[in-house]
Amino acid sequence: MDLVRRARPEAVLALPGAVQRSAGVRIGGTDGVAVPRSAASGAVRADLDEVFRREYPRVVGVAARVLGSRDSAEDVAQDVFLSFGRSSVPAGEARGWLSVAAAHTALNLLRSGRRRASREKSAAAADDVVAPDVADAVVTLEERRRVRAALARLPRRQAVALVLRHSGLSYADVAAALDLSPGSVGTTVRRAESALREELNRHASSD
């Protein structure tokens, strides 16, 4: 049992500048509200630049896995770090907090379809010109779109756990970030992958 609940990243969704809070989604504690530390004075936490330089690529990576576009992912990262800078999340929990926040914000964006059309276009163009790599050999661009659409429909906890694990967070990190037991992370991720794979197969067989 937690005696002290830490601020949970879902609060990011409620802050100005971030995308709208999604109804009924609750990852983590029941009282997960990040209190802006010095909102009145507008000050930001002293360790922001250090945390930023350490975690920025990962936060972009989390959002990019959801959105499929680096530009959109960097926009999300800006929002997330802005919120983090105003929060009092303990430094030791920064990675998990930022990753969960990035996943939520990106999933909301994906679901609300607020990605700018120009961004989508440029991302698609970029996809077309890059040299084939391992990923390209396995799935097509169209399949990636389908997977992301299916990702937006997954139960939120499954989607976040999946994205965090594929972004390199360990099972222990994912468990801590989502208040899951380490043993259930594998089950959650497996179910998400199974659902996405079914989505791919369903389309493949109906083609």
Binding site: D49, F52, R53, Y56, P57, V60, G61, A64, R65, V66, L67, G68, S69, R70, A73, E74, A77, Q78, F81, L82, G85, A126, D127, V130, D133, V134, A135, V138, V139, E143, R144, V147, R148, L151, L162, V163, H166, V189, R190, A192, E193, S194, L196, R197, L200
Partner: peptide, 26 residues
């Protein structure tokens, strides 16, 4: 399943970020 989904979620160029420029923006 993990391999296929991992490949589908992969985004080209996502790792090529410029933290210094992003920090300026922030």
């Amino acid at each position: 399943d993990a391999m296929v989904v991992g490949a589908a979620l992969h985004t080209d160029g996502a790792a090529d970020v410029d933290p210094a420029a992003a920090w300026q923006r922030l």
